[in-house]
Design a protein around this nucleic acid. Structure first.
Lengths: 219, 219
DNA sequence: GCGAAATTGGAAAGTCAATTCCAATCCTTG
DNA sequence: CAAGGATTGGAATTGACTTTCCAATTTCGC
């Protein structure tokens, strides 16, 4: 991963004020890139939003690519941490529904603007920025791992049959979330997201019911 | 930012050569915008690719927004027509699998670059170009309608129970396709797409099996 | 074949973004 | 408090892109 370019002339903030500035820039850039896309966000845009001068941005991030990379990492980790309490307990149908519905409420709140923070970046950057693609792949992997680990626990516990393809179920839920958010973004209505996600969870619930049935048959 | 602009100074090609030029531009723009995004595609890019001068592009499309709108319509109708034979017969589990696998093969062929022609445009433009969003919503609606009509036929036929929520199943499959393609694009591996789509089709197949079971119970 | 309309080439204007640079100013540390 | 690095402001450079414009040139209807 020769993350290139970023290695150039990037100073880590070593003073308190510096750290706050860097943070302000990062937040502003993340918000703007989420709302308008990376290409639609100019450095002057970020300057205005963060109330900083150009040199501060270049001082801390090197160039726009470096800033973008930082935003990707920021979104990946921040969104993950925000949901940590929920993510760590995705080991029941109810927990899955609750987690997905949480996102639906957020969609409602913003009238479905922007879609998924990571998904939007992924769609825009995957094909044109290899190092960004890597970062985004890592972000998605973390998400998928969280879902998988919940499902795996359900399987160990016997809620799911030993033969269930947990990775496939996990990736399907993630895909439904991403695709559902995209459809909701385009239609400006969270219904597609809710439907897609709930159908997939219904399917998982069916598998749970099947496991239960076969268990009671066994004895 | 109303739909305007497109109404401005756009000449329809009235001569044969003109039509071919317009077409060449449209194809070039569609391809480039697919591969590099709309923002990443400049007019000079399109000029080079289509071997035309700037004035020809502005002559036929008015401005970049008009060109983008034309590309959206082009992708919507062309992709739909390409798949027409399959789309009109999505009324069996096998047909659904065949249709989705067809797309998977295409993903393999391009190493998952670009994702979905409509989905990529949707993600990039939905939030920043209202008229583009409308066009994309129409495009997605056509897709969804095709899936729904196949499922509806299965329901009429009794393959699916009368109580099945066909629109929800259809939107879920569409979401899995879109989300799966996104995940595949990011990971450069068609596996996520294949898994997501097949799990959703498995679910539909389960519903078909359930309908069959309840039918044989009835008699 | 002739005139009008369609089509085309290519230069040029105007804008704006990315990035660099240098001179201030601030902070920390000894 | 003085040196030196960290941080900041803002102008200047460079380059690309969108769009306009006008002068050819071709094509079509008659």
């Amino acid at each position: 991963m020769q993350t290139r370019s970023v290695g150039t002339r990037v100073k880590a903030a070593s003073t308190e004020g510096g750290r706050r500035t860097r943070d302000r820039i990062l937040r502003a850039a993340a918000e703007l890139m989420f709302k308008q896309g990376v290409a639609g966000t100019s450095i002057p845009d970020v300057q205005r939003r963060a109330q900083v001068s150009a040199s501060q941005i270049y001082h801390y991030f090197g160039d726009k690519k470096g800033l973008t990379a930082a935003v990707i990492e920021y979104q990946s980790t921040v969104k993950l941490e925000q949901q940590r309490p929920l993510l760590d307990h995705l080991d029941s149908i109810d927990a899955l529904r609750e987690w997905c519905e949480r996102a639906a409420v957020r969609l409602d709140a913003v009238h479905c603007a922007g879609g998924c923070e990571i998904g939007s970046l992924a769609s825009e950057l995957s094909d044109i920025d290899p190092s960004a693609r890597l970062g985004l792949a890592t972000g998605f992997a973390a998400w998928q791992a969280a879902i998988e680990s919940g499902l795996a626990r359900m399987r160990e516990r016997g809620d799911l049959g030993a033969d269930e393809d947990v990775p496939a179920l996990a990736v399907t839920l993630l895909a439904a979330i991403q695709g559902g958010m995209l459809l909701s973004q385009v239609s400006q209505d969270a219904t597609p997201y809710r439907r897609a996600v709930n159908v997939v969870i219904d399917h998982i619930a069916d598998r749970v019911a099947a496991a239960q049935a076969s268990r009671s048959t066994d004895r």
